[in-house]
Amino acid sequence: MINLMKRYLMGLLAVPVVFGLSALGAVQADFPQRPLTVMIPYTAGGASDFQARIVTIPAEDVLGQPVAIINRPGAGGQVGWNQVVQSFGTDGHELAGYNVPHFIAQSIMHDTHYNKDNLEPIANWGADPAVLIVSRDSQFDTLEDLVEYAKANPGRVTVSGAGQFVGHHIATLQLERAAGIELRYVPTSGGVDAMRFVQGGQSMAGFNNLSDAYRARDRLKILAIADVQRDEEFLPDVPTLKERGFDVDDSSVNFRGVMAPKGVPEDRLEMLSEAFVKMFNDDRSKRRMSAGGSPLRVMNRAETREMWERQQVALEELFEGMEAN
C-alpha cells in the first residue's frame, strides 16, 4: 500500500514543481522574432484562403519570417473573428484576414464581439466584386430577362450566395431595391457551394465572387457586375448594374486584407503595414493572383481604415429597418 501511494505521489509531484517555473515571465526581443500567423475564418480551399496563401508567399524575404495560414471556419467568419478580439495576443504576431463587407455587416446585424473599432487594419490586398451569374443553360440571357421574370413572378427567383450578410447578400438586397423586385436569397456555407447551386440548377441565379465566376466562365453566363465600373482586366464585356439603370454601388465588393486586434503597438502596425504592402506588390503574388482572375487592390493602413469607415456608414444605411432574424 505504501508502495502504491509512493507511485501516485511520484507521478503527481512533477506537476507543481514545473508549474512554479511558469511564473518567471517571457523575454522580449526584436519584432518579428518568430513566424507570423494569419487566421482565415473560412475553410481551406476557399477563395479567401488560397488568395491569402498566395499573397503571403514572399513573406520570408520581406519580413524575415514566414507567414503561416491557419483556418478557423464557422458561421460566415464569425467564429474566427470573435476569437481575434477574444483570445489573440497583441504583440503583432497573431494576425487575421478580414473580408469587408462581411465582418462589418455582421457586427451591425449580429451580436458579435468584434466591430470595426476593436480591430486594426494592416493592409488590403484584393477587391473582388460580386457578379450576377446563371448557369449555361439558363432561360435568362441578360440581366433584363431576369428582372422581367422576377417582376412577373415575385419571390420565385432564387439567388444563391456565400452566406447571410456577406457581399453577395448585400448585392442581392441592393438589386431588389433598385429594380423593385422580390428575390429569394439562399445562403450557403461558402462561395464554392453557392457556385455549385447555380451550376446544378438548385438556384436560378446567384451572386458570386468575380474571381470564382471568371474561372468557371465557360459553364456560366455572367449577367452583370455589382461595382461602379466594369472590370477591364478579366471581364471587359460584362456590364455593371449601374450602367443598366439599377442604382447599385460598390458596397458589396468583397475587400480582402490583413488585420490585427486592437492593442498592437503603433510602430509594429506601421512596420507590418509597410511589409504587407510590399508583399502584395511582389511579382510572385501578382502573377499568381492574376492567373486566378483575382483582382488585386493594394491599400495601406490609412486607406484601409478609410474604406472601413465608408463601408460602415453605407451598410448602416442599407440595413436601416432590417431585422437580423
Binding site: 458561421a75 460566415g76 449580429h110 452566406g163 450578410f165 445562403p187
Partner: peptide
C-alpha cells in the same frame, strides 16, 4: 452547437 448555419445566429 455554435451557430445556425443559415441565419448565422449564435
Amino acid at each position: 452547437i455554435g451557430f445556425n448555419p443559415i441565419l448565422g445566429t449564435e
